[in-house]
Each structure stands twice: as structure tokens, then as C-alpha cells.
Amino acid sequence: MVNGKRTLIIIPALNESGSIADVVGEVRGELPGVDVLVVDDGSTDRTAAVATAAGATVAKLPYNLGVGGAMRLGYRYARDHNYDVAIQIDADGQHDPRYVPKLVDLLDDNDLVIGARFAGEGDYTVRGPRRWAMVMLSAVLSRVAHTKLTDTTSGFRAANRRVIDMFATWYPAEYLGDTVETLVHTARRGYRIRQVPVAMRKRMAGTPSHSPARAMIYLGRAFAVLTLALIRR
């Protein structure tokens, strides 16, 4: 329970055995009474075992579906088990669970709340093409959603029942679709989106999925995905 709402924390994880125990432990310590679902997306290390030992419920996918695939499973679980709120948190320890009550508070008047870097708190910075991509995405998506969005690819989000129901049946598995396309889709259907500034921490262990060399490709794909999302129904 967070603020009287049944809350599920969904953590998509791929080979995060180095940090998952601390993340699950911290979430359970900071937020007593929430349930934690770790979706292990075909990890080749001991992520699932470590997460179970730390006290999380673990759903183990037989092979890698990507963050979007893992998240739809998470939202289905939330819907089937009748949760009021579902919150996505990264498995690398970059998201601070102490912000969760703030996100949940805002769900009273909004349907989807995003914990955003670059919004005042913390000192997370990105440079080069990856930054240009983020600026472009922010500008366009802010207009579509009629609210200021500075961190559209954030994996720190809280959804209420209406959005859980939608995401349980529709959630793209494609690259960037899980962040960019879901925002366009959600805004287009009249749901209210809001962002909350959060400080982002360094990942605790493991390797980040993005290398600087891929930044330029990232920009191109971000543009393609955005265009596609905008012409799609």
C-alpha cells in the first residue's frame, strides 16, 4: 500500500544479478507493503534466483522479449491481480524508490506519471546525438501530451488502473516503442500525463545498454519511431 493504494512495483531486468538484490531490498525497505514483480527477460546470469531470494515475485520469460515485452507481462500481472497502481523501476538502481509516494500522489489527478531527469533535480547529463534525440522527443511529445515532458525515455513511470488496463492489452515490444510510442498512444486517448523531477543515480553494477557509438543510430531510430507513432492510430 502507498497512500492507501494497492501498489505493484514492476522491475524489468536483463542480466542484472549485480544490482537486483539491492534494488529489491531498497524498494521493500522504503515502501513497506508494496509488492515487487521482477520480470526476468531471459537473463543468462542468476538474476531470477537473486531476485527471488531478495523477496520479489519473479516472472521468468523463456527468451528475451525486450523491455516492452517484459512490461506488458508486468501490466497483465497488475491487472489480473487487481492493483490500483503499477510502477516501473529500472533494475540497475538508477531510480530512487523514495520518489514513489510522490508519483503515486500525482496519480490522483493524472493517469500516467513520469519520473524525469533533466527537470531540475540531480545532475544527470547526456551529450551529442543522444541529447539531440532527447531534445527532439521532448519538444514533440510535450506538444502531443499538452504538458511539459523533459525525459520521454525515462523508465520510471507510475500508471493508474485505466492505464494498466490499456497497457495490459497494448504495449509495443519494439525498440523505443515502450517509451515514445506509449506516450503518444496514451496522450492521444485523452489520458493525462505529468512528469515529476527526480534525481537519477549511477547504475550500481552491470553494463548500460547504450554505448556512445550507437548514439547516432539512436537519433535516427528515435526520429523514425516518433514519425511512425504520430501517423499511427
Binding site: E174, A224, L228, R232, R233
Partner: peptide, 16 residues
């Protein structure tokens, strides 16, 4: 192709 993409009948990678 554009219409198939719009209706989500075609995955992004093939559409592109």
C-alpha cells in the same frame, strides 16, 4: 505499406 504500418499490421523493422 504506409497504411499497413498505420494499422500496426507490420512491425516497424519490416516497414522501415
Amino acid at each position: 505499406i504506409v497504411e499497413l504500418l498505420r494499422r500496426r499490421q507490420l512491425r516497424e523493422k519490416y516497414g522501415m
